[in-house]
């Protein structure tokens, strides 16, 4: 009797589980999705992969290191380390200041090569018309610089807006010590 009822229970539970896996099946790789959400979406390829999504997939399948995203910086690396449950790793490249690309329009010959290179469609222009970059859409990936045959694209520092200014930490010793402790903690 006991065997029968336990067996019956196991059967029912098994059926429920089978249905649940069907019903709640998740498409794709949830870890890669989460990592992708942490990446800055600059699409610059500095990590060695052709975009943020491929890098996220490589990290999720533990093919790539967690510290290759330069624009994401330390914050992104630590978030990924937390998610993957691995030790943080220092980023070798120096922390980048936010940049945007700018076309010197009077020198542009309208060849459309940069338009093809831009991963986020931030460049507008037509053949033989000069091109311009939508500042608000540019991620600063620098992918348009090399294709330009006349070298008329500059990388400029992203202008600082007064609306986006934010208060620095208070200038007290404790706040500084706290900050240093945090930094050194992150590098171990």
């Amino acid at each position: 009797m006991a065997i029968l009822s336990l067996g019956g229970f196991a059967l029912v539970a098994g059926i429920i589980l089978a249905i649940a896996t069907r019903a709640f099946h998740i498409e794709g790789d949830p870890i890669a999705d989460k990592i992708e959400d942490m990446l800055p979406q600059t699409q610059c390829g500095q990590c060695g992969y052709p975009g943020c999504r491929p890098y996220a997939e490589a990290v999720a399948s533990e093919v790539a290191e967690i510290n290759n995203c330069v624009p994401g910086g330390e914050r992104t690396m630590i978030a990924i380390a937390d998610l993957m449950g691995v030790e943080p790793k220092a980023i070798e490249a120096e922390e980048a200041i936010p940049m945007i690309a700018f076309v010197r329009e009077d020198e542009c010959i309208g060849c459309t090569l940069c338009i093809k290179a831009c991963p986020v469609d931030a460049i507008v222009g037509a053949p033989k018309q000069y091109h311009t970059i939508i500042t608000d859409h540019c991620t600063g990936c620098t992918l348009c610089i090399d294709p330009c045959p006349v070298d008329c694209i500059d990388m400029l520092q992203k202008p600082e807006l007064i609306e986006h200014w934010s208060w620095p930490l208070p200038d007290t010793q404790r706040s500084r010590i706290g900050h240093q402790r945090r930094e050194s903690h992150q590098h171990v």
């Binding site: 800055p40 979406q41 600059t42 943020c52 986020v120 469609d121 991620t139 934010s166």
Partner: peptide, 17 residues
């Protein structure tokens, strides 16, 4: 506020790409 702005920009860039 900065984090929110960056997240929004990243989402927009992702959509564009």
């Amino acid at each position: 506020a900065q984090l929110t702005r960056e997240r929004r920009f990243a989402d927009e860039s992702k959509a564009r790409s």
